[in-house]
Every structure is written in C-alpha cells, then in structure tokens.
C-alpha cells in the first residue's frame, strides 16, 4: 500500500500507548479516590485499546503476518520504539498525572493529523483515538491545574514532577511520525502545555535539547520483564 504509514512510526505510537497503559494499570485498585481509580483505568483501557489496534495492523501488514501478542510479548526491550516518557515508573500521583498530560497533549495533534491522512486504516484508528485523547487531556489538565493551584504540598509535588519529566519532553518534539508535520505538532504541544501551566500558576521551564534517554532503558526492562513473564513461561499456549 503506497499510502501506508511505515511500521517504525506505527510501532512508536503503539509501544508508547502500550507501555503508558501498562503503567496506568498499575494504579488500578490503588488510586487516591475511587472516582480517580476508575478514571485512570479508563485512560489505561483507552490507550491499551489503541495499542492493540495499531499492533494488529502492524501484525497484519507483516510478511508473513504475525499477531499483536507476538509483538507485545515476544519482542525484547531493545526492539520497542516507545517514547521513553511512557516507560518510566509511575512515581507519585503528580508524576503519573503530569506524564498523562504531556503524552495526551502530544497525542491530540498526532491523532488529528493521522485522522486526515491517506493511510485510511490508520485514519480509522486515529478517528476514535483522537476523541479519547481529548478526554484524557481534559482529565489530566484539570489535575495539573488543581495541583499547581492547590496546596503547598501539591505544588511542591507537581513542580518535582515537572523537574523529573521535563528532560524527556525534547524527545516528544523531535521524534518523526510519518503522516504528521513535526513543526505543527510542536507548536500545538507547546500551546497546550503553556495554557495549562498558566492556569496552574506555574512557569514552564525552557525547552532544552532532547536529552538522550539511558540507552539500557532500565524502567522499560523492568516493565517488560513483568508484563511478558507468564506469556514467555508458556510460549506455545493459547490464552
């Protein structure tokens, strides 16, 4: 298919969604309030669903075809192409929420561009995903504002989260995703983040050069070791 988005871009999107969803799923049953537990799990379900749709597409397009589970459970850590922000351990609720906010702000313009793109199979996934991403963005935005403009403790925590995650944001802006325009995506992300930080009465740090993530990706390795453990113990099993 000549209009097909290359697999490398699809895997960046799919792996980012999968690892982010996995991290969010770790909160299930441990959220700060029952309503938040349910809301966070909604985001986890949305992004794992997006990952599945994309991995199924990649699996179908491969020669010979493979399966979503082969891609999720039997690739090694170095084969994953996710944005490093997605794989990081959760930290506290401020860091979890800020990560969701930064990623959702990135995904909204990505999905909106792909929705209008020539790869119609990807566009079909993006149409649904962009609605979900807007919802995720609204939820995370509300909490960033509450934390920034809440108590001294919440302010301290959200600022610590910004300090910790901000160095990973350069990668968001620099990564190439076929079917999207990097400059437009960058402008959209900066505009969303600036607006939210202003409402949260916080100062946005300067955007430095993209830091090079630790090439051994320790958090990704830990995450995948757990996620893939049972499937790899029974490589021939059907579940």
């Amino acid at each position: 298919m000549s209009n097909a988005i290359p697999e490398t871009s699809l895997l960046t999107l799919a792996d980012t969604c999968l690892l982010w969803g996995h991290r969010l799923s770790e909160w299930c049953g441990h959220g700060p309030a029952l309503e938040e537990d349910i809301a966070l799990t909604n985001t986890a379900l949305d992004v794992i669903g997006q990952a599945r749709a994309l991995l199924q597409l990649v699996a179908h397009r491969r020669t010979p075809p493979t399966t979503e589970d082969a891609l999720a459970y039997f690739r090694d850590p170095h084969e994953f192409r996710n944005l490093s922000l997605a794989e990081l351990a959760n930290g506290d609720y401020a860091q979890t929420i800020l990560r969701s906010f930064l990623l959702a702000a990135w995904f909204v313009p990505v999905w909106e561009a792909l929705e209008k793109g020539a790869d119609r199979q990807v566009a079909a996934i993006a149409t649904n995903a962009s609605k979900e991403a807007r919802m995720q963005l609204r939820h995370a935005h509300d909490w960033v504002v509450r934390f920034g403009d809440g108590t001294p403790e919440s302010r301290r925590r959200i600022e610590a989260a910004v300090a910790s995650l901000w160095p990973r944001c350069g990668e968001l802006l620099d990564v190439e995703i076929d079917g999207t325009a990097r400059t437009a995506r960058r402008d959209a992300w900066l505009s969303i983040v600036t607006t939210t930080f202003t409402k949260a009465t916080m100062t946005m740090p300067p955007m430095g050069a993209a830091s090079t993530p630790n090439s051994s990706h320790p958090d990704r390795v830990t995450l995948l070791t757990e996620m893939q453990s049972l499937a790899r113990q029974h490589p021939n099993a059907v579940w």
Partner: peptide, 12 residues
C-alpha cells in the same frame, strides 16, 4: 498516599 491529592482538589 492519596490524602494530599484529595486535599489539593478541595483547596483548589
């Protein structure tokens, strides 16, 4: 662990 989150929501 979620106490500070609920307090922040109430304060905001």
């Amino acid at each position: 662990d979620g106490g500070w989150v609920r307090e922040a929501a109430a304060a905001h």
